[in-house]
């Protein structure tokens, strides 16, 4: 079952190579053509569309000119396109109710709309932009350095390999199993909600890519079998009692029952 998926390390090697080649080609093409299309120099059209979307979906809390409201929502002037792409792209925004924990829901906008929203917010003041494909390409990263950085800076909240964990007062750090590399990068850059900011001086763009590479490694599966959520000894103890002791005690009952 699982083993099949895990074997791709071997069998999928040619596929991955081909994919990497393809990705490289498209990237080269996009560099050649669409680099100016990045959020920094977004078209006026996009900004205008974004403003409309903003007024319709975000202004209730953040204010018509995104200046924010005390105690309700922060100002968005200067948060940059990266913050919008992360918050809206993971479904955290728009929020249902103001609070410290923004829950990732179904994404409510399509990629184009998100880009338009991002372009609008980016136009309000300078801020971090959405990283390009090379910046988040796990294949270029060093997972060993990523591990060092992850365990020093991230694992206390997100768990040793990104399984997530609890914060105070009901807040939590989410699991990172399904988070896209771009969103991981953006989260580090902007520090959404409870998460601190890891700017480029603290963690260079290469460092961030190394972290992505480390997290990608985890998706190859666990060497020892099913990973029990990677939440550590509590899960192991629970399984030892439920499954291990359960099975063995079941056998003792079978031994004790008279045969018919």
């Amino acid at each position: 079952m699982r083993t099949v998926a895990l074997k791709r390390h071997h069998r999928a090697a040619p596929l991955i190579l081909m994919f990497a080649l393809l990705a490289g080609l498209t990237m080269a093409a996009s560099f050649a053509r669409s680099e100016p299309a990045q959020a920094t120099v977004a078209s006026e059209d996009a900004i205008q569309e974004g403003q409309k979307l903003f007024a319709a979906n975000c202004a209730t809390c953040h204010g018509l000119s995104a200046q924010g409201q005390d105690g309700v929502a922060p100002t968005l002037v200067g948060v940059g396109a990266a913050a919008v792409d992360f918050q809206v792209g993971t479904g955290r925004m728009p929020m249902q109710a103001s609070g410290p924990q923004a829950i990732a829901k179904d994404v409510q906008f399509n990629d184009k709309q998100i880009a338009q929203l991002a372009a609008y917010v980016a136009s309000l003041g300078p801020g971090p932009s959405v990283p390009d494909a090379e910046a988040v390409d796990a294949a270029l990263g060093d997972p060993a350095n990523g591990m060092q950085l992850f365990r020093t800076n991230c694992s206390m909240c997100h768990g040793s390999v990104g399984g997530g964990g609890a914060l105070s007062q009901g807040k939590y750090a989410p699991a990172l199993w399904a988070t896209t590399p771009t969103h991981i990068y953006e989260a580090m850059l902007v520090g959404p909600q409870s998460m601190p900011v890891f700017n480029d001086a603290n963690m260079t763009p290469e460092d961030k890519r190394d972290i992505i590479a480390f997290l990608e490694e985890q998706r190859d599966g666990a060497p020892g079998g099913l990973s029990l959520g990677t939440i550590g000894p509590v899960a192991e103890g629970l399984w030892a009692w439920l499954l291990g002791m359960g099975l063995i005690v079941g056998f003792t009952v079978w031994i004790g029952v008279r045969s018919s």
């Binding site: 591990m147 060092q148 365990r151 020093t152 694992s155 206390m156 909240c157 997100h158 768990g159 040793s160 390999v161 399984g163 997530g164 964990g165 609890a166 750090a173 985890q218 666990a222 060497p223 020892g224 079998g225 099913l226 990973s227 029990l228 990677t230 939440i231 550590g232 000894p233 509590v234 192991e236 399984w239």
Partner: peptide, 21 residues
């Protein structure tokens, strides 16, 4: 079937890091 105590995920001892769980 079940992985237990994957020390390579926790990494070698260092007094600075700590993980959730």
């Amino acid at each position: 079937v079940f992985q237990i105590n994957p020390v390579w995920n926790y990494g070698p001892y260092d007094p600075s890091p700590v993980s959730a769980g």
